[in-house]
């Protein structure tokens, strides 16, 4: 996988390293979470990162990929998630792009602080966790320009994890 040539699996449509960045295209299948994670871990093995940062990167990947496949795509559709992972000084930046339903995680109400085991809410924890772990999080909805054929509207989410 650690070459510009591409590799494939059930969950991963393509994986390549281009100019020091990992470029993944993930299929609309739950297998994309684990197959994509393996590509991410292999790529990160070549980076100098401490254990907590590696874990944070895997958490962000797991939460956002699983959220898109569970809630952003039509079942069994041919939709896909493009993931770019780019190490930069002091951070690792993810860019997630998908052609699913519009979804801006910045508009999600933060999970309520836990007060008691009886009242603790267990929905929506994933996006709140991503927001808490991130040094930077931004969202835009990409739309085709006039005359631009074959371009499906996309969600683009950029998440930076401090190293």
């Amino acid at each position: 996988m650690a070459k510009p040539s591409q590799s494939k699996s059930d969950g991963v449509r393509s994986a390549a390293i281009v100019d020091g960045r990992l470029e993944l295209v993930l299929n609309n299948r739950m297998a994309a979470i684990e197959d994509g994670r393996r590509c991410l871990v292999e790529f990160l093995a070549g980076q100098v990162l401490d254990e907590v940062v590696r874990h944070r990167l895997e958490v962000v990947f797991e939460e956002l990929v699983s959220n898109t496949i569970r809630h952003g795509f039509a079942m069994h559709s041919d939709q896909s998630i493009h993931v770019r992972v780019e190490p930069r000084p002091g951070l690792v930046e993810f860019t997630f792009e998908d052609d699913g339903w519009p979804f801006n995680p910045l508009e999600v109400e933060p999970a309520e602080p836990f007060k008691s085991i009886e009242t603790a809410k267990i929905g929506g924890l994933g996006i709140s966790l991503v927001a808490e772990l991130s040094a930077h999080l931004s969202y835009e909805r990409l739309a085709p320009h006039a005359g631009q054929l074959g371009f499906a509207p996309r969600n683009r989410l950029v998440v930076a994890i401090a190293t």
Partner: peptide, 18 residues
Amino acid sequence: AGPGVRDVIETAALTEII
């Protein structure tokens, strides 16, 4: 819990209830 798991537990403030 190891460092990565502990980090998530503390970030989520799970220790408030467990």
